[in-house]
Design a protein around this nucleic acid. Structure first.
Lengths: 351, 351
DNA sequence: AACCTCTACGGACACGTGTCCGCGTCAAGT
DNA sequence: ACTTGACGCGGACACGTGTCCGTAGAGGTT
């Protein structure tokens, strides 16, 4: 008696045809219900809906997309998932896109695998590709050219200065200006750089921000900043900051304020100076960058710079959404986000 | 002259037919090359390969999968992306799966949206679904039942004790036993619990580990552990740990060792005790859980428990890969991972 | 010149879906 | 009883792909 165990052992419904048979309707009728077409009795609609939630049947997305419906998927390409800021960006972007009905296909772009990643996105016919992080310049530019050739919109978050690329980037220079302003107001005139190496600076880099902030206060960059970047045993940022602090502590004429590349280096430096018997901020001031949670969990808490990630991602989402479905723009879109100083206990008046 | 600008303005190739026309071969021939079928002249193969890398053409994955080829995609369902351990698990799993040729479709399972997430995975015909994190029990059990009904394999990482679910979980009880053993050997006999509330314990919970560790050392659980969990103003773990430490510090007869639920609580507690003028580990010992990077960046560094995430994910990947393509197993697979004590500076001999 | 082998061609079908369209059915209205 | 309208049915096609198969042309051998 086949009908008897029909109730307990329901077969796996793999197609609309299967499902329609199960409901007792024609495939086309079911399809009409699923796509909200008019001309159907309410009773029929209810019948399908109920069976739908009972069986959990879902139309094959591949067939649907093949028929021409949007894939409603974007590709997100990550440099890595190692640091909190990029993870936070990913999480926020994913949430914003989901709220707009877009799924995220996420891949990590190992050096050299970029081609495969982008090919995979293209084969999935994603509606846009977002890159988060900092990549090899030639590689990412080649990938973007490929995307453009395929008519697929793209956006790069946090890799400024790429050719022909739509970018949303944090103005780290402005962040540095805010840091210098804060330290200057506290009376500091000489600054140690932790993990920030002197060299050529592009438009919104930390260094250019340092330069302009010092210039605006009639200070000479080379005279009032010191970088001990010769120690290239940089394993991880915390240890590196600690070692740098050790070297600085041994110097007779050291600066009164230290500007860290990121929070880990700054926190390592705090520790390094403490190990050398110095007190922060009594003897010297230290700043970080990124405003990670950890900044509020150390003694002293860290003065740092917040990336305004929500603003960044909102801007990014806007750029992506605005491009969807339209022909590709000719001129690249470039947006800049201004970060924000966050005061902690690690900065104080110069002695 | 149409052929003249053929070189600079190449049209977007959207199908194998387009591509074949572009190469000057039959669609079927191109398809044969793409799928590595025999009976083709090397010269022809090379011609297609070259055009392939020049144009960057990719077959429509949806059509390919529709034809019956594997989707080679797994769904990963995250509780959130807020804490480092889950992010690390995600990153590792994604990497391992990619190395096996599997893409990851990642979604965040907001309470209530679980149904949609799983439906989406099913509509994409993923080959398996992995849950990472801790969910509402009824909700995740309902989702798993749905997956089973659809014949799709699943795995839950870090949510122990679910009915009919394949799980890989950390044996937090064993972690607690290691912690107690370490503290006991240092001479501690009374323990303060930070964020760990007394109550019913299931098999591999922290509490059951505490119980058995104390029992093995002939100590009475209720007599030698104190929990101040009445302060339910738990905003974030760090502040909560700090407040708990403040309350404990005010007690005349406080324990000599404190066991934290996680690293953030423990680090907050360190800070709280320091604020009260106590020294760690001179006056008291503190342990965390998770071995986040931050543990090595505080003063003192934290004694904690490592989750052995690589081992966890390796086991998870094995379970998933073993299930792919086969009919569903009847008996749930349950694996347990043993964590590992990591010594820091925050624990020392009892006074 | 006749024959054979190698290889590309191109028609055909299936996969699961959305959509169009003509046809049948059934109930309500006249 | 007849007309009419509402509504479900089922055939057909297209989407892009993989694969089978019969055919044809090119090139080499006898």
């Amino acid at each position: 008696m086949p009908p008897s165990n029909k109730a307990n052992v329901s077969p796996v419904l793999r197609s609309t045809a299967d499902f329609a048979r199960h409901v007792g309707l024609a495939r086309t009728t079911v399809s009409r219900v699923l796509n909200g077409q008019p001309g159907l009795k309410q009773k029929t609609i209810d019948r399908v809906q109920r069976a739908l939630s009972e069986t959990g049947f879902t139309p094959n997305a591949h067939a649907v997309h093949l028929k021409g419906k949007r894939t409603s998927t974007i590709g997100i390409c990550m440099e890595d998932l190692a640091t909190p800021p990029v993870v936070q960006k990913l999480a926020t972007l994913q949430r914003v896109m989901r709220a707009r009905g877009l799924s995220s296909l996420i891949e990590v772009f190992n050096p050299g695998s970029g081609r495969d990643v982008v090919r995979h996105f293209l084969s999935m016919r994603v509606e846009a590709v977002v890159f988060i992080g900092h990549f090899l310049r030639e590689e990412i530019e080649a990938r973007i050219a490929e995307l453009i050739a395929h008519g697929t919109p793209h956006l790069v978050i946090d890799h400024f200065g790429l050719k022909n690329a739509n970018t949303v980037s944090l103005d780290r220079g402005a962040g540095m200006e805010a840091v210098i302003e804060h330290l200057f107001d506290l009376g500091h005139r000489r600054f140690g750089l932790l993990g920030i190496s002197k060299g050529p600076a592009s438009k919104i880099d930390r260094l250019s921000g340092l330069h302009s902030a010092l210039r605006a206060r009639k200070l000479d960059f080379d005279a009032c900043t010191i970088s001990l970047d010769h120690l290239h045993e940089r394993q991880n940022d915390f240890e590196y900051g600690r070692k740098l602090a050790g070297s600085f502590a041994a110097q007779p004429d050291r600066p009164s304020a230290f500007v860290g590349l990121n929070d880990a280096i700054a926190i390592g430096a705090v520790r390094g100076f403490q190990d050398a018997g110095l007190k922060v901020p009594r003897d010297l001031s230290i700043t970080g960058f990124n405003n990670q949670e950890i900044c509020h969990m150390t003694s002293p808490t860290l003065t740092t710079v917040d990336q305004n990630i929500d603003t960044t991602i909102a801007a990014a989402a806007e750029v992506v959404l605005e491009q969807l479905g339209k022909p590709l723009r000719l001129k690249p879109i470039i947006k800049t986000i201004t970060p924000q100083l966050v005061l902690g206990e690690s900065t104080g008046p110069a002695r």
